[in-house]
Amino acid sequence: MHIPDGFIDIPTSTAFAAVAAVGVAASLKGAARSLDEKTAPLAGLTATFIFAVQMLNFPVAAGTSGHLLGGALAAILVGPYVATLSLTVVLLLQALLFADGGLTALGLSVFNMSLLGVWAGYGAFLLARKVLPKNKVSITAGAFFAGLVSVPVAALGFVLQYAIGANATFSLTTVFTAMFGTHVLIGIGEGIITGLSVSAVMASRPDLVFGYRGTKKNLEIREVQK
């Protein structure tokens, strides 16, 4: 979902770049508060792993492929602030080194994937965690759901950008329908990869998983209060 230069006009791209910059600045602050000796290496690994898996396009329908975005995965593993930074590092390097996604369009992509994708995935995960029973299987199920939700939401970010500042003049309804439909399919792949990756980390170091640590900490506090 890396947007090339030219799809969206410069004023709109600039405006979204400004919003993205505010989001990244807030995330730097949030991340500085949450990172410690144990989570900093996992954060670096998460960004690196997302770069690698983003190279693995999987087929979704005739003549269409998708790849992991990783926003939900990162949010569950290292929390939403560090996740936004991880995705931004990946997008920045992809645009600069590999010409994957335009340079003037970078703010658009950061908005969609580093902010919308991350926070939609994180929100969906929290919702699933609240509804499902409190165990490790629920963490994996929640991760699948978070991945599934995050992709179409990120795609809607592009639809919004298209509505505001597309250089082309095709109907918004057509773009909306095509983007949403295609990315629900890609979201299924995202959900599967997110669920598998989270369960792999849960199997070896559940204590490092941000989305799981939260539940355990609450229990500890209750014990102390007794």
Binding site: N57, P59, V60, G63, S65, H67, A178, M179, T182
Partner: peptide, 16 residues
């Protein structure tokens, strides 16, 4: 990996 266009690229091609 699949070398087919990704979701956005495919939509852009289909819509025009």
């Amino acid at each position: 990996a699949s070398s087919d266009p990704d979701g956005l690229e495919k939509v852009a091609g289909d819509v025009g």
